[in-house]
């Protein structure tokens, strides 16, 4: 999808905060000097092309329960198997392969800390691999995106 200047502006201005007001897209349209209909059409199209994964709320996961980043070092020849087991475990919502001795990085979630620890313990036992538990101690910049350098993009 070819993005024009207005699409880029929409992303630049609203990847962090969309107004939560009576008519949010009308508000946006006034800021951009286009119609509300056009704002909605553009957002829909960005979303349809998955350039924007969604237009909506970003929830604070920690309020919704407990979660933790964990990593294991899976032997290279077992990577797929271990990854599949991790993906099947209840509560896992992200799993990334990364180039490192610790090659599988996943986020385990649960309704509360007790269940979280149970889930991690069970998975660790099942995988028979020591697990790095890396809870967030402090967040300095939490999932706020970053400035997109449009010129640098292919």
């Amino acid at each position: 999808m070819q993005l024009d200047a207005t699409d880029r502006q929409l992303i630049d201005l609203y990847q962090r905060d969309l107004p939560v007001c009576d008519r949010p897209f009308l508000d946006v349209s006034r800021q951009l000097g286009i119609t509300e209909e056009e704002v909605i059409g553009r957002l829909q199209s960005l979303q349809d092309h998955q350039v924007v994964s969604r237009v909506g709320p970003v929830f604070e996961h920690s309020r919704a329960g407990a979660s933790l980043l964990a990593a294991v070092a899976a032997p290279e020849q077992q990577l797929d198997l271990v990854a599949a087991r991790i993906n099947r475990a209840p509560g896992v919502n992200h799993n990334y392969a990364r180039e490192h001795t610790y090659n599988l990085w996943f986020v385990m979630t649960a309704p509360d800390e007790t269940v979280l620890e149970e889930r991690l313990g069970e998975l660790e036992q099942q995988l028979r691999l020591p697990m790095l538990r890396l809870p967030m101690v402090e967040g300095y910049h939490i999932d706020l995106g970053f400035e997109i350098d449009w010129e640098a993009l292919p």
Binding site: V20, D22, P24, P57, V58, E60, G145
Partner: peptide
Amino acid sequence: LSRFQRMQETGAIRRVAAVPDHYKL
């Protein structure tokens, strides 16, 4: 609307946004 505003004020919602897919970009 008031529930969304309140959830945002209390931090249950971090933000409402057009969340870009950086990989796609």
